[in-house]
Design a protein around this nucleic acid. Structure first.
Length: 693
DNA sequence: GTTTAGGATTCG
């Protein structure tokens, strides 16, 4: 016992069992009045748990006193023993369902002795089998039975078998993957893993022909890391997995024909990704596992076979088929990867950057040519049917799973969610009321002034006199018109020059004084920009900010009264002096010291997914409706388009059941209203599906 | 404390 205590280190944990509590004779201020008496004779047992650097771990089944496990090198194995082993994975079959009661995983390991051992591991619980994802992963097996089979040593699960698996990449975090709740893990073991990693790096070849769809070739077997977007039963012995990995298969690939109603998955997403997904048909023993997979999960499908094929009616058009054949040869199988797997992180990044728009717009050879082989039902019409079910699409984060509304309502803010819901109702019902002016500086929203307000301001200005001294300056030429039968009213137009020359009207900025609304409208059809002005003693000046500071075609630009700090009209001359004045509203605003207001749609959507209902705000410049908020008030066409969209989303007089689904992203956020805190929701990264518009 | 599978591609 003394000897064992000599192995104790500072901060190790010890557990003492079978001790006696006795009064301490050496009790004082620093020492407790009782002490523990431990002796071998009294049957005391001491457990020592060495201090660990990354994991604090205890193993329940550990033997008393410094349970330093001994690990047998693979060249020292004897039949009929139960041993602990370390090894690098040379080959493995991901867990598969046996004909018996268990899952089976076959794993061949090898160590520095260069002797390999094939282990046949069984367990009724998939999670209890080693979580090996790749060749070169490092495993630690405890209590594995060694026996002879066909003249060779074989490892097989025995009672109390437990395993840890580590990423085999040199330098990767040493984080054990295991289902064991408790396990030992010391610095010494960490060293063993690092050594094995280094050994494996130069002694185990990873034959990894392209793990990406973009590298798929017509004839190959490869491991595919991907996300499941759809699945369907095809017949008793085959099952369809529709997957993508954020890259595009360079060849046309087959589309397995299934009834739309048999396809499980988000129809809108399937449609949206139609040129990036591939169909993999899995057979026989893999069907059962495939059925249990959840759409949205990340998978590695091992030893997928890509096969070149062509249809009978079009022998010259060939395409790739993807099969996962029956059996488990060469480690054929499917494994679900956890979200935190490093390869999944890469996958997500690729999926994020996948240029969806491009793949949507460019009809690839694959879907067009293959359609013709689907006699009575083309993929397009099938996709159309899918599309009818969701009227919005996500512009990002497609890999996230849906969250039910009741879960969101019971969660704290702020968070992001992907949801699928129906639009029960929305406000305002009069769509023109949804357009507001927004100041991004002070976050204020205001109503869009109406033309009558502007007309009134123009009339007041027209009553003031022109100041001829302000006409014809260096940077503008001026012209004055008299009016007929309108008393003293005169109209002055100041043409801003560029390079001391006048430009074409469609490129020209003019400043107008004394004009009526009708006249200004007429001028705005001809000239690029109009700034309404008045004159004072010293200079031309902008009108009140209740009026637009700039008119471009039909768009009237307003400034924020709160945040603007008006400069002189003279400031515009610096813009005019630029090499190629673009007359961008933001530049003009900046020159004039105006904080421009932006046109936005502000609406409240009452969404319902059957589990709950919540109000989500839509705050949209253009993206959601694909209609610029700045243009809708002056365009009948755009107004009709928006009305049509809303009537598709929420057709009047229809029951909730008959409404289409909306796929949305929403964010929750806290709003303080006096003393009360309230959670609000806002829609983002979502837009109306192309087919609806 | 049984059985399963026991590495070694392709019917579809």
């Amino acid at each position: 016992m003394e000897e064992n205590f000599s192995r104790l280190f500072f901060k190790d944990t010890i557990v003492v069992a079978g001790f006696k509590v006795a009064k301490s004779l050496s009790a004082n201020e620093d020492r407790h009045c009782c002490h523990l008496e431990v002796s071998e004779d009294a049957g005391s047992t001491i457990y020592i748990y060495p201090k660990t650097s990354t994991v604090t771990a205890l193993e329940t089944t550990s033997m008393p006193v410094a349970p330093k496990y001994t690990y047998t090198p693979l060249n020292h194995l004897k039949g009929g023993t139960i041993v602990n082993l370390y090894g690098a994975v040379k080959f493995f079959k991901p867990p598969y369902i046996t004909k018996g009661t268990d899952y089976c995983s076959v794993i061949t390991i090898v160590d520095q002795s260069n002797v390999k051992l094939t282990c046949t591991l069984f367990n009724g619980n998939l999670d209890a089998l080693p979580k090996v994802y790749k060749v070169r992963d490092i495993v630690r097996f405890h209590r594995i039975k060694i026996r002879e089979y066909n003249g060779q040593m074989q490892g097989i699960t025995s009672i109390g078998f437990a395993s840890l698996t580590f990423d085999g990449t040199i330098g990767a975090p040493i984080a054990p993957r295991t289902s064991s709740k408790q396990y030992t893990f010391t610095e010494e073991e960490q060293k063993t893993i690092e050594e094995l990693r280094i050994w494996a790096a130069s002694n185990l070849s990873v034959s990894e022909p392209t793990a990406k769809l973009s590298g798929a070739q017509p004839m190959m077997f490869f491991d595919l890391t991907c996300q499941l977007v759809g699945k369907a039963e095809v017949d008793g012995s085959s099952f369809l997995l529709k997957v993508w990995d954020g890259t595009k298969c360079p060849y046309p690939s087959w589309k397995v024909l299934v009834e739309a109603s048999d396809l499980e998955g988000d129809k809108a997403l399937i449609h949206q990704l139609r040129n990036l997904t591939v169909d993999i048909l899995v057979y026989d023993n893999h069907v059962q596992l495939a059925k249990s997979l959840k759409v949205g999960s990340f998978l590695r499908i091992y030893s997928v076979h890509s096969k070149q094929a062509s249809s009978e009616n079009q022998p010259d058009v060939s395409y790739i088929e993807f099969h996962l054949h029956g059996g488990t040869c060469y480690g054929r199988g499917i494994r679900v990867l956890p979200e935190n797997n490093p390869d999944v992180e890469v996958l997500k990044a690729l999926m994020d950057s996948a240029n969806l728009t491009e793949s949507q717009n460019v009809e690839t050879v694959s879907s067009m040519e293959l359609d013709s082989t689907f006699d009575n039902m083309s993929y397009e019409s099938y996709a159309e049917r899918c599309q009818q079910l969701s009227v919005t699409v996500l512009t990002d984060h497609q890999y996230l799973n849906d969250t039910p509304l009741n879960t969101i309502l019971n969660s704290t803010a702020p968070q992001h969610y992907r949801i699928r819901a129906k639009l029960r109702t929305f406000k305002p019902q009069k769509l023109y009321q949804s357009v507001k002016l927004y100041c991004s500086k002070c976050n204020s929203l205001q109503e869009v002034p109406d033309g009558d307000d502007f007309d009134l301001i123009l009339r007041e200005t027209a009553a003031t006199l022109l100041n001829p001294e302000l006409h014809n300056k260096l940077w503008y030429d001026s012209a004055v018109w008299d009016t007929e039968n309108q008393g003293q009213r005169k109209i002055a137009v100041h043409f801003v020059k560029h390079d001391e020359l006048l430009q074409e009207p469609e490129n020209t900025l003019i400043m107008v004084q004394g004009g009526m609304l009708k006249e200004i409208r007429k001028l705005s059809r001809r000239f690029k920009c109009i700034i309404p002005v008045k004159s004072t003693q010293e200079d031309l000046e902008l009108l009140d900010l209740s009026a637009p500071f700039l008119l471009q075609g039909k768009i009237w630009h307003y400034g924020c009264k709160q945040c603007s700090n008006l400069k002189t009209i003279q400031s515009l001359s610096s813009l005019a002096a630029q090499e190629q004045p673009s007359w961008e509203p933001t530049e003009i605003a900046q020159a004039l010291g105006i904080e421009p207001l932006q046109y936005v749609f502000v609406m409240k959507f009452t969404l319902d997914d059957g589990t709950g209902s919540l109000d989500a705000y839509l705050f949209d410049y253009e993206k959601f409706f694909q209609i610029p908020a700045s243009e809708i008030l002056t365009s009948n066409l755009l107004q009709e388009k928006m009305e049509m969209i809303m009537s598709v989303f929420c057709p009047p007089g229809k029951k909730l059941d008959d409404l289409p689904w909306l796929e949305c992203f929403i964010r929750s956020y806290n709003v303080r209203n006096g003393m009360e805190q309230q959670v609000c929701y806002q829609i983002f990264d979502t837009m109306v599906a192309e087919d609806v518009v």
